[in-house]
């Protein structure tokens, strides 16, 4: 990266990183006022937003996913939309449609009515309940940041961030996301059930009529600037190669593959997975106040980046092998040194 590009971000690196950390800290604080616990999820979601990626949350309903997105949109002063995916949901319900509209003179003409996808933060709730056709409608908007209707392409206003959720329990009447679509998500985060203390706090806040709200911390422009600054974080070659070795280790036919990978994995992560790791690691490094990515950053975001990209084979499925276990083994057995 050239010096000019670095300067484009504005100020000295030390200043940039310091401001970044401060803003991020305040965002987390504000979100923390509303969301009880779930720090990893919050950090993961923020990382995805900063890395210009999308996130797939997997967890049972009622764990505050909608509240989280709503809070983030409020803190970052962004527009928020929510779509509840159902089997009868049509693509036009997401992206919009052309409708006949009568003007002031009484003549009729077609006008494009934007769907809920035209927003900054989109919550695709229970995305696996919609048909693949409808899921595919979201695919273009996630990858291309644009929507094409009747040969007309409509660009989505940045930032555009999709947070999809899926319920791991109810598999009947669902349409599992295809690998290509899964690959569009930067992270897949597993939302764990709150602890007793966290539940206690949640109950206190939600059953006593106490109104908790988060303040706005940054605006849309600042968010876009922070996204650009993230990309200026440097990564040394040995560290980058470490990330790439981890990725290769998820492929059963590679030299770096571990025993579990060879036994239970059908397909490993794509190059997009490596991009996700490096971008997320940069965000992680900046959150840590560093100007470079270290192996620890890679290790921190590795599972979230790859767990939805590693496809188990029949044996793995039958054995009930968890992808996280496989990734843990890869982390353990892959040396940091080249």
């Amino acid at each position: 990266m050239s010096k000019a590009a670095a300067k484009k971000g504005g100020g000295a690196p030390e200043e940039i990183v310091r401001a970044f950390r401060e803003d991020l800290g305040r965002i987390q604080d504000e979100i923390g006022k509303v969301i009880v616990g779930q720090e990893e999820i919050v950090q993961g979601v923020i990382t995805c937003i900063m890395a210009d990626g999308h996130v797939l949350l997997e967890g049972v309903p009622g764990l505050g996913k909608t509240v989280l997105v709503n809070t983030i949109s409020h803190v970052m002063d962004l527009q928020f939309e929510r779509i509840q995916f159902t089997p009868d949901l049509q693509p036009s319900d997401i992206i919009g449609t052309r409708m006949a509209v009568e003007d002031e003179r009484g003549s009729m003409h077609f006008e494009f009515q934007k769907g809920p996808v035209f927003t900054n933060l989109l919550l695709a709730d229970e995305i696996n309940r919609a048909t693949p056709k409808t899921q595919a409608a979201l695919l273009e908007s996630m990858a291309e940041r644009s929507v094409t209707v009747a040969s007309t392409t409509h660009r989505l206003e940045p930032p555009f961030f999709v947070m999809a959720t899926q319920n791991p329990l109810e598999q009947e009447g669902t349409y599992p996301l295809p690998e290509a679509q899964l690959d569009r998500f930067l992270f897949k985060l597993i939302v764990r059930f709150p602890s007793l203390d966290e539940l206690d706090i949640i109950m206190d806040r939600t059953t006593r009529g106490v109104k908790v709200s988060a303040d706005k911390v940054i605006d849309r422009e600042r968010l876009l600037e922070m996204r650009r600054q993230v990309r200026e974080v440097e990564i040394a070659k040995p560290v980058q190669r470490y990330a790439l070795r981890l990725l290769r280790a998820t492929h059963p036919d590679m030299d770096e593959a571990t025993d579990m990978v060879r036994q239970f994995v059908r397909n490993g992560g794509s190059p997009r997975g490596a991009q996700a790791m490096l971008l997320a690691a940069k965000v992680n490094a900046m959150m840590d106040g560093r100007y470079h990515v270290g192996p620890e950053d890679i290790q921190a975001i590795m599972k979230a980046s790859l767990r939805h990209r590693v496809i188990l084979n029949f044996e793995g499925e039958a054995e009930g092998v968890q992808t996280d276990d496989i990734l843990s083994e890869i982390l353990k057995k892959t040396s940091v040194k080249g």
């Binding site: 990266m1 010096k3 590009a5 670095a6 690196p13 990183v17 200026e232 440097e234 100007y291 470079h292």
Partner: peptide, 8 residues
């Protein structure tokens, strides 16, 4: 070297 490299 970029500013971030120098900073690192």
């Amino acid at each position: 070297r970029t500013p971030f490299m120098e900073a690192a």
